[in-house]
Design a protein around this nucleic acid. Structure first.
Lengths: 188, 188
DNA sequence: AGTTGTCAAATGAACGTTCACTCAATACAG
DNA sequence: CTGTATTGAGTGAACGTTCATTTGACAACT
């Protein structure tokens, strides 16, 4: 038999919960199913995390911190930054799904996550600085520029398949579209 | 007392369901709550619509058809089209929420809605025609151009508040950003 | 080394509640 | 009276949560 390893169980539980929540959201997630995926009983969820909600929060925090750390911004190359974001979203589709569930289900419930706000503020500041130094278009304000970049990068992750399946199907082609679009948005 | 009017009840039920589903999604919606809003019993839902899922489908179809009919595309003025889309989404925020719930919860479940596909195909064709006539940039393909336009128009409806609350707060300013961004995307 | 005590890890059955759905009874219109 | 609209009590299953109990690891003691 495998030796006991609570920390590993905890991680397995988080991983399974991440998959379950990404697929079904909070209301749709089932504790039994999730525990089954992690190879343990449903009761164990309540030993480690207090409730379904808290489990979701734990998953969300972990995922968000992870996503915020990767892909640091490069204000001088927003198209490249958008490309990197797009790559990340393609490699980990569940991140965007979790973020969307969170936005829909916790509507007005919780205050803005501090880690996200800070991470975004840094990026806005970096962009503003590049604008002051004349290295970036000032047609849009710094927050607008960041939002346009991120929004374009997440185009295929957020739009309905009826729209997004019409364009290019291959990753490289889609990526090229994203990069080119952001280039047009940021050029002087 | 008001005379009996089954058709009005049906409409009231649809309206209440639309609000309920937009707020909580399919899994989170409650039949009792929804029936209460419509001023009738939960049982009546099952005489008019067969089940919770079918009720959602009815709501979704109605909303989608309604949304597809308004704001016909103007290939020669995609920025203006984006502005109109943005206005519509601001006036009826529940439409985008319903579409998002649908995308998340019916993942791979149902085939693409025919009404949507057709409506989109028309728009793509109109854009392609304008491109052939030299009235529109050919830097992007027609589907890409439509997707970029729609995606930019729905920017504030789809991004998390942590991002979208940083930029301009007034409708007019946000609209101007959308229009200007699309202008940049479509210019030769 | 073997026995025992101790505590955390983990289980699985049970509980109380919620919820979608049903149906017999009733109110109403024609 | 006849048929339709509507109700509201009721049902069974599903689900989140709890808890008494078991299992496993490890150290203390003989």
């Amino acid at each position: 038999m495998a030796p006991r390893d609570p920390e590993a169980k905890r991680r397995a539980l988080l991983k399974a919960a991440r998959a379950e929540f990404a697929e079904h959201g909070i209301a749709g997630a089932r504790i039994d199913r999730l525990a089954g995926r992690a190879g343990c009983s449903a009761g164990l969820v309540y030993t480690y995390f207090g409730s379904k909600e808290e489990l979701f929060t734990a998953v969300f925090d972990q995922v968000v911190v992870q996503a915020a750390e990767q892909a640091p911004i490069s204000p001088d190359d927003l198209p490249g930054y958008a490309g990197a974001l797009f790559d990340g979203q393609t490699a980990h589709p569940d991140v965007m799904r979790l973020a969307t569930w969170h936005r829909l289900e916790q509507q007005g419930g919780r205050p803005p996550i501090e880690a996200i706000t800070r991470s975004i503020q840094e990026k806005v500041d970096a962009i503003r600085k590049a604008q002051r130094d004349g290295r970036l278009s000032t047609r849009f304000s710094a927050p607008e520029l960041l939002m346009l970049t991120i929004n374009t990068a997440s185009m295929w992750a957020l739009q309905s398949p009826e729209i997004s399946d019409l364009g290019p199907r291959e990753h490289a082609a889609r990526r090229a579209t994203v990069v080119e679009a952001v280039r047009r948005l940021v050029e002087p």
